[in-house]
Design a protein around this nucleic acid. Structure first.
Lengths: 375, 375
DNA sequence: ACGGCCGGTGAGAACGTTCTCTCACTCCGC
DNA sequence: GCGGAGTGAGAGAACGTTCTCACCGGCCGT
């Protein structure tokens, strides 16, 4: 009826100017009445609000952001939102964000550095006020540094980066893995296998036996790496068998792939009597492999998995797992991020959330005396 | 070194004006060289780009959005991102969005209408260019109408709303449920139970037996409701037992709650010999209940679940389920949304993706002659 | 040789909001 | 009755980008 584009279905959104005209006041007054800042007379205020109501006015957040700098948006960059770990963490972030009146923008990195870089860059361009990121690399952090330089706080989720002055929310992966493997060793197992998910490209170089006969890993502080460290430390402390044949890596976050590696692990000449898997995907692959090879759990092989997903209690036997709470981790990361957004400038902190070894029925004493380890 | 705020860690981002000054050209020319629109001489272009490089310039997307109207953001509103269904759908949406150079903003509605309304409102204020929403209500759609009026296309995910002229991406829930229940009935089961997740407040009124002795549901086209319809239709067509005692509702998306209802269902005087669960949460609850009550599957009771999640193949026995692909659904919804964003104005379409009844080992013939059904 | 055209550049407006500044008016106190 | 303080309202700038317009030079066509 009034000046509209006519054909287009999208009517122009009313602006403060429209409301001002409708109410017969100036733009400044309308702005004050609507945004309740400054001072406005009560009568005019009501008049303006009525006009706004009539027109269905609602403020343009983009314009507001442009003027005031704040977008009330944060970013989350994770490997893959369809992974239960990230989905649950995202949920925690969302919850906190909503309490704060913020919206999260999501980006999947697929664990590829260049994708993560691009995502961070876009988020920065979109002027997010902070970013929670589960970083792919712990060495290449220029894009994260840039965010920090721009005054956009970064909180690391699941991985700590020593070289970057940024808060991180992690669990003590090494200790958790140590506890899990120690549990197996405590049950008498001497040949404990490891199934880990690591990109071979930047994966750990398993520096084969050093002079002392120890296996060590080089590589950065990604969760899997730390868990491998924990495994090695436990095996070493308990003087159990330490051998490259007991360790299988799977490059992708793909259960089928993990299953193949697990089968290789379980069907070798001298198979392990217990296996520790470093994440939920390898845990699933490991379980499938044992099942497919007809191995009885825990009679033939004991299993300890990582992440306490629902299904680990549904299968037979229920799985012993290392439990962490991605919901709490996401929440903690978001809480920390908002503290930073609000100006907190304490030194970067490493927030370590607890893990729990949930002992169920997939682990048992190693009764059959297999004794080929050298003392 | 140059004019900075000093103490604050956040250096002001360089703007086009800064680059222009650095390159010794006008703002207009710098803008043209950076945004490659208009015409710029080759020498000046390089000069400007070099200056931009030196300053680490990167465009302010908020300002760009303000000027050009497009934010290159879309919204996704779902009940709960930590639910595998939504997480996977979100993944599909993200993938398509990224191909298009868009970023998704996420909001959880927790299946509460007022939360959904608020989320849509915020997204609209943030000038998203389109919204994918798995709506809570199929009757109260004013907020979605408003989006359409503002020219922001809406694509419905998982639920169709007849009253709203909007595309939807769904599966044929009624047919899928019918097929699942028919499968059970074809195996000889006459007492087939139903475990459905429905908010009792706006839930179906199970209009107890009509004159013909049929059970019917009233209520809108939410997935669960349609699946209930499919169940009733199958039971009716096969002249199997139709009785309110065979039907249990659980209000919340909570497996423990679902388990309690399932136990009630399975432990009544004349328990069903087969049960159909309408979604992944109730499926889990149902499985846990059968397990907890020591019922052998499928000897004592046959089970058909909904959603082909990983765990359904890991448990013993592997579950017969109705499979749908939330990834494809999310992808299809996003694809449709971008068609709309690009101006497609064909009439709204209901995109129906296929489901598949995956028969595994949780369903078997009803051998033991329990024969208390009349007719 | 002169007018028009075109490529290249700069000045400035516009997007919608918020904020600062100015100004008019009122009310109070001296 | 007049000055100052205080209140409410309007004019306009600013955020950073994009786009329109005008201008200026050279070149080509007639």
């Amino acid at each position: 009826m009034s000046a509209g584009t006519g054909a287009a279905p999208g009517r122009r959104r009313p602006t403060v100017a429209d409301v001002a005209r409708e109410a017969g006041v100036s733009v400044a007054t309308a702005g004050r009445a609507l945004g309740n800042y400054g001072r406005v007379g009560d009568d005019l205020r009501e008049q303006v609000q009525a006009a706004a109501e009539r027109l269905g006015y609602s403020p343009n957040a983009v314009a507001r952001s442009m003027r005031s700098g704040g977008t009330r948006s944060i970013g989350f960059v994770g490997a893959d939102i369809s992974n239960p770990y990230f989905a649950t963490a995202m949920r925690g972030i969302c919850d906190v964000a909503r309490e704060q009146g913020y919206e999260p923008i999501l980006a999947n990195s697929d664990d590829r550095l260049e994708v993560e870089r691009a995502a961070v860059s876009v988020l920065l361009d979109k002027q997010v006020e902070g970013i929670v990121v589960a970083p792919t690399s712990v060495t290449d952090v220029a894009h994260l540094e840039r965010a920090k330089e721009l005054g956009v706080p970064i909180v690391l989720l699941d991985r700590h980066i020593g070289a970057l002055e940024a808060d991180s929310v992690v669990v003590d992966n090494e200790a958790a893995a140590y506890e899990a493997v120690a549990h197996l060793l405590g049950l008498g197992h001497r040949r404990v296998g490891l199934l880990a998910c690591v990109d071979p490209a930047e994966g750990p170089e398993l520096a084969a036996r050093t002079g002392t006969g120890r296996l060590t890993v080089r590589g950065a502080a990604r969760p899997s790496i730390d868990r491998i460290r924990g495994y090695l430390a436990a095996v070493d402390d308990h003087r159990a068998t330490s051998s490259a044949e007991l360790i299988q890596y799977t490059p992708l976050s793909d259960a089928a792939q993990a299953q193949r590696r697990a089968e290789a692990l379980l069907t070798q000449p001298q198979p392990p009597t217990a296996v520790f898997a470093t994440d939920n995907v390898t845990t699933q692959g490991l379980f499938m492999a044992a099942r497919r090879r007809g191995l009885a759990i825990p009679a033939d092989v004991s299993l300890v998995g990582f992440d306490d997903l629902d299904w680990t209690t549904l299968v037979d036997p229920p799985l012993t797992v290392v439990a962490q709470s991605p919901l709490d981790m996401g929440r903690a990361a978001a809480v920390r991020l908002f503290e930073r957004i609000k100006g907190d400038d304490r030194p970067a902190e490493r927030i370590v959330l607890p893990t729990e070894l949930v002992v169920r029925s997939s682990t048992a004493e190693h009764s059959h005396g297999v004794r080929e380890h050298s003392g």
